[in-house]
Design a protein around this nucleic acid. Structure first.
Lengths: 179, 179
DNA sequence: GTTCTCATGTAAATCGTTACATGATTAT
DNA sequence: ATAATCATGTAACGATTTACATGAGAAC
């Protein structure tokens, strides 16, 4: 699913300007999708040219016009058609995991610090999601939010229970470096 | 961490050709990193030009030379220096999750099928990892492998326990479409 | 006989981010 | 006064993938 399609999707929820769509991406999709203005604005322009969106410029004093986009019937059709296509694979890329692969090359202490920070990060995310989750409107969003929390909680527990494996390995690297 | 750096990292394990490095990426890093020949080959050429790798061409009959790369002392130093840099954020992008956001727009049955397939996929992955995990050499790899299994198992349980949320929503969409 | 494995490499295309350009308003 | 929010848009740059080019040997 590309940014074009996801802009259409967001606009099935409600009309919005490019600026607002960015915020919706951040507030509601940020756990599994990212997009910058540099990709959103051109996408909206193109979708409008293709008749999948309509656009109303709301003039404002001392600010650029707010361009509020609505999805058209064609747009809705195109979006549902896009949803029907086979789902692409998840793309996950983690520098954290990649770094762990080489933990035996890292100075002692660095690995422990990394793991501590990661646990803190996940705890903070869970806290955020806990409050978010209550506010979420749709069951879909509650499902996704709960999913994220469950996964992060598992990650925390796993790290806590198995970190000795990595910490032992880093120490081994240190010892062999000291020889 | 870019592909350049990760090629260096892989070559701290053992000498290898570009072709073999690709396999190592697939066998041991595929859960959190992906790379194609189109990125690996140019990276190796460049790293060799910079003196971070050395290359020995092993001529073979009726096949292109195997170019076996070794990491140099400079390369090792550069790699450890790269590891010391602050770790980049995980990048996760999921069409599956994005699609779930719009489950109320999907035909009844489609959502259930999606969830069934996802559970099957995760079960298959866990099975693969279970056998992989036993073979893994380093503690780092055991840690990562176990991490993956724990997360996938949580995902399966979560989906099974909460799928009714999505299935109810899809049905609601169907009913309102039938009105 | 068709697919998989071995083996390297380049060029074009894709997809997206970052930085730039501009500038008022509101909250701390 | 400093940062954040509001508001849009373009251009340059970056990283990586896909497709192309080439071809033999082994396995099923």
């Amino acid at each position: 699913m590309d940014i074009r399609t996801l802009c259409l999707g967001v606009l099935t929820f409600e009309d919005a300007s490019g600026y607002e769509i960015k915020k919706i991406f951040e507030d509601r999709l940020s756990h599994f999708f990212h997009a910058s203005f540099g990709s959103i604005y051109p996408a909206l322009t193109k979708l409008t040219d293709e008749g999948l969106l309509s656009c109303t410029a709301m003039s404002q004093e001392k600010r650029p016009d707010r361009k509020v986009y609505s999805i058209t019937a064609d747009g809705r059709f195109a979006f549902v058609k896009a949803l029907a296509k086979p789902i692409g694979d998840d793309r996950y890329r983690s520098d954290f995991m990649a770094t762990l692969m080489f933990s035996s090359l890292l100075p002692a202490g660095t690995v422990s610090k990394m793991l501590d920070e990661r646990i803190e990060k996940y705890k903070a995310l869970i806290d955020d999601m806990k409050s978010e989750c209550v506010v979420k409107q749709t069951d879909s969003e509650k499902f996704i939010c709960g999913y994220g929390m469950a996964v992060y909680q598992t990650a925390i527990s796993y790290i806590e229970e198995n970190r000795h494996l990595l910490e032992a390995e880093a120490l081994k690297g240190q010892l062999s470096a000291a020889e």
